[in-house]
């Protein structure tokens, strides 16, 4: 999909000023001593049929954002518009019905499947929750699902521990695909897999998108993976979006110093592609006590006085490219 074509379309999912704060409780009386600002005022949109990649390091709030977007965790402030409806304002029952269309795939292929249930029950659960179907119909649908994700239906009575990591991840994907969702959050869905299996699952994600017309929010710290699968990419740092653009644009012309450092830090197996490495000083600060001004300034090699005082806003610099930096790289 190219840019102008996308611009004409409506967003399938759009957030505006979404915040998620977790209270830090202290002492015997559970007094609230402060807040972890996991997600702090994010606004972005995802077009139908595309993959939006979200990258960032641990603790930047990308997983929290994935859950807020699905209303699995209620936003502290801001709106999450899905298909024109504000999810944060929906009644419990409406939300439960909408769950058919919104799905999530988790990172841990060991933890995301109930160890005490055979996989046919794990994959059949969505039907039992949302549809009035009898046992035989569920069985048929499960077999269909297993074909879809490349599992052998003969093994549907086996338990999760009898499968390898890649196969388990296929079960998790099948469960998410059961009710033909429209929007799927993949939270580090391939990060825990071995390289040779990871590429199989990435291919599966792309095939399912083509066949079922899915929209993905693909959350990962693996920059290579995100580059491969995404149409748009957003970069998060300490609860803020620092840069957002079309994938090729972002990877070839990063404007934010953090994005540049992140990209240069990817270990390159291809010795021809080796680039100058920028090694950032220090560690990611705690989101409970973020730095003033631009949150990246203590680690930024180009930081100026302004960066310490004033927070930069996410602003468009060109076609479909927005960056939150006072002095974007040119």
């Amino acid at each position: 999909m190219n840019a102008p074509e996308l611009a004409k379309k409506q967003y399938l999912l759009e957030t505006s000023g979404v915040k998620k704060y977790f209270p830090i409780k202290k002492g015997v009386l559970n007094r609230i001593a402060g807040y972890v600002q996991a997600v702090d005022g994010l606004s972005f949109g995802i077009f139908p049929g595309e993959t939006f990649g979200l990258v960032g390091e641990s603790g930047c709030g990308k997983s929290t954002l994935g859950r807020v977007v699905l209303n699995l965790q209620r936003a502290t402030a801001g709106q999450v518009l899905y298909d024109g409806r504000d999810l944060t304002k929906l009644q419990m029952k409406e939300m439960r019905n909408l769950r058919r269309e919104l799905q999530i795939i988790f990172q841990d292929p060991f933890g995301s499947l109930n160890p005490r249930l055979p996989i046919k029950d794990i994959m059949g659960e969505p039907f039992r929750v949302h549809e009035r179907v009898n046992k035989r119909e569920i069985d048929e649908k499960v077999i269909e699902l297993m074909h879809l994700v490349g599992l052998d239906p003969a093994r549907r009575n086996s338990y999760p521990h009898e499968f390898s990591g890649g196969q388990r991840q296929r079960v998790g994907i099948a469960r998410a695909m059961a009710l033909h969702p429209k929007f799927v959050v993949a939270d580090e869905a391939v990060s825990a897999l071995d390289v040779s299996v990871q590429s199989q699952i990435i291919n599966l994600f792309m095939r399912l998108q083509r066949e079922l017309g899915l929209t993905y929010l693909f959350i990962s710290h693996g920059l290579n993976v995100v580059r491969h699968i995404s149409d748009h990419v957003g970069v998060m740092y300490l609860g803020k979006l620092v840069e957002i653009s079309l994938t090729d644009e972002l990877y070839s012309h990063p404007l934010h110093p953090y994005t540049l450092a992140l990209l240069s830090a990817i270990p390159q197996p291809d010795r021809a592609k080796k680039s100058q490495r920028i090694i950032l000083q220090g560690d990611v600060p705690s989101p409970a006590n973020p730095p003033s001004g631009c949150r990246f300034h203590p680690r930024c090699p180009y930081a100026q006085v302004l960066c310490r005082q004033e927070e930069p806003l996410l602003q468009g610099t060109g076609e479909d490219h927005r960056v939150a930096c006072h002095f974007p790289l040119g």
């Binding site: 291919n203 290579n224 993976v225």
Partner: peptide, 18 residues
């Protein structure tokens, strides 16, 4: 090596998978 996204495959195309 070929399974690594970005090693030889183009964005959005199927990755080489063992």
């Amino acid at each position: 090596l070929k399974s690594i996204p970005g090693y030889e495959s183009k964005r959005g195309m199927d990755l080489y998978a063992i």
